Simulated assay, not measured.
Amino acid sequence: MGDPTGATQPRRRGGKAAWTLMLLAPICGELMFSAVGMPIMWLAFPFLVPMYGAGVLLVRELTVRAGGAWPTLVVLGLVYELAEDGFGLQALTSPVMYNAAEWGPRVLGVNLTYWEAQVGYHIVFSVLIPVLLTDLLFPELRREPYFRGRGLVGIAATAVVGVALLRVTFPPSVDPGYQAPLPFLAGLLVIMLGLSWFALRVVPRRFPVPPPDVGPGTSVPGPPVLGVVALAATLGFLGLLMPRGNPPSGPAFGEGDLVYLPMAVAALLAIGMLLLFRRWSGSPAMTDQHAIWAAGGALVGHTLFMIVMVLRYPVDTLTTTVALTTGPAVILATVVLLRLLARRVAARPGWAERSVVVREP
Rank of each mutant, 00 (worst) to 15 (best):
T113L: 13
T113Y: 07
Y114I: 09
W115C: 10
W115D: 07
E116W: 08
E116T: 09
A117I: 00
Q118Y: 03
Q118E: 01
Q118N: 14
H122F: 07
I123F: 10
I123D: 04
S126Y: 04
L128D: 08
P130W: 02
L132E: 02
L133S: 04
T134L: 04
D135E: 15
L137D: 02
F138Q: 09
F138P: 12
F138V: 04
P139E: 06
P139C: 05
P139A: 04
L141C: 02
R143F: 00
E144G: 01
Y146I: 06
F147E: 09
F147H: 13
F147V: 13
R148L: 06
R148A: 15
G149F: 03
G149K: 05
R150V: 14
G151D: 03
G151E: 06
V153T: 08
G154L: 12
G154A: 12
G154N: 05
A156P: 05
T158D: 00
T158A: 15
V160W: 09
V160F: 10
V161E: 11
V161G: 14
G162P: 04
V163A: 03
L165Y: 05
L165D: 10
L166T: 15
V168H: 10
F170R: 13
F170S: 07
F170Q: 12
P171T: 10
S173I: 06
G177F: 03
Y178R: 10
P181H: 14
P181V: 10
L182G: 01
L182V: 15
P183M: 03
L185N: 11
G187K: 14
G187F: 12
L188H: 09
L188V: 11
L189D: 13
L195K: 03
L195H: 02
L195I: 11
S196Y: 03
F198L: 14
L200R: 03
L200V: 07
L200K: 07
R201G: 00
V202Y: 02
V202T: 13
V203Y: 01
P204H: 04
R205N: 02
R205K: 13
R206M: 13
F207D: 03
P208T: 11
P208H: 06
P208V: 09
P212L: 09
D213M: 15
V214D: 14
P216H: 13
P216T: 07
T218P: 15
T218L: 08
V220D: 10
V220H: 11
P221V: 04
P221Y: 10
P224Q: 09
P224T: 12
V225C: 02
L226V: 09
L226G: 14
L226I: 02
V228K: 12
V228E: 04
V229F: 00
A230L: 06
A232M: 13
T234D: 06
L235C: 05
L235A: 09
L235I: 06
F237H: 08
